[in-house]
Design a protein around this nucleic acid. Sequence first.
DNA 1: ATAATGACGTCGG
DNA 2: TCCGACGCCATTA
Length: 112
Amino acid sequence: MRRMTEPEDVPAIPPYAEAVLELAERIPPGKVMTYGDVAEYLGRGGPRQVGRVMALYGAPVPWWRVIRADGRPLPGHEHRALPEYRAEGTPLRTVAGEPRVDLRAARWDGTP
DNA sequence: ATAATGACGTCGG
DNA sequence: TCCGACGCCATTA
């Protein structure tokens, strides 16, 4: 028989999380948005909320296009993010021998 | 209802 | 450059 309610052991994606993921999918290759940019664009939440969403549900989307405001790739995930940036042509700048995303050139404002 | 938790951001030292 | 303190706010316990 069908239950009147959804099973509790199936994690439902919260509405805010869906909005974040939907926007993340829209970020064009070669461009990035910071956590703060995403929150500002959505008009709700904040950088930390976006970060939480990406941590929990970001795996299926191009997570490497959502980065910190300092342009540094996720610590511990550089080896996955950097090849993506190279393949997409994301503007990078080398600082102290470490590659970072050049936000001046790579930041996406939401305009297609 | 309150408290704790965070892929963060900004500022000060 | 690195570190700490504080603000932020959706979600969970």
